[in-house]
Amino acid sequence: MLCFGFTFLYVPMVLLIVYSFNYSKIVPVWGGWSTRWYTVLFESEEVWAAITLSLKIALMNATFATMLGALAGLALVRFKSFRGRTLFGGMISAPLVMPEVITGLSLLLLFITLGQLIGWPTNRGITTITIAHITFSMAYVAVIIQSRLTGLDQSLEEAAEDLGAKPFRVLIDITLPLLAPGLLAGWLLAFTLSIDDLVIASFVSGPGANTLPMLIYSRVRLGLRPDINAMATIIIIVVAIGVCLAGWLMMRQERQRQRDMQLASGDNIKQD
């Protein structure tokens, strides 16, 4: 069963990579090894524009979503009883379960209405996509921060306050550094969500603003294309390197932790 699953997971990827080096213009017909589609891909200004746009949006989205999501998470966990806490908590997680089509459609309506009422946004593009992405990625970040904060020993913050740190100082010195892994995870997730998104971006984008997924989708709508295979191959390689790097970092951390524990217990024995 597992082999069956893996077959359907990885064989298409291997096929994709192999066919990206196909000379033939018609995808399923093998015409010998070649890298011509990579050249075609990198010479296309349209592709570069899409990549740049996607990266810009993803970076802005990740940064703002992390900030807003962290604030929401902090408010939900650290301020135990403010008015409407349950409502706020429910509303922040609603985007997680909302179908993307509805989120996209409603945001488009909002932007059109706003455009008519106050004259902004005048045209849809990078700004509207970024705002749309922030609204839903923020919810994911809030959930991550919430779970990280719940696991955080509150006496650490109390200890800092006890030692003379005012609440804001406690946030800077203690809470945020301890939340760093959660913040990083939230940022990466928001980044990925934005790079991945096709549906919402399609709704709120305007003429001339094509993100990478939008470009890929519009091209393959007209049939399989070898240059898209080349692009997919590059994406797979980048992702694979990223995953390996993260795994390696985590392994190194784990080893360090084990060494530290041995160090601590070693001292114990010496003391006795």
Binding site: L156, E158, A159, A160, E161, D162, G164, A165
Partner: peptide, 20 residues
Amino acid sequence: VPPYERPVNMMFQSYALFPH
């Protein structure tokens, strides 16, 4: 008076040492 202005310090049960 808030905790950060009291002439009092506390040793916590969990020690609450700042791990970073």
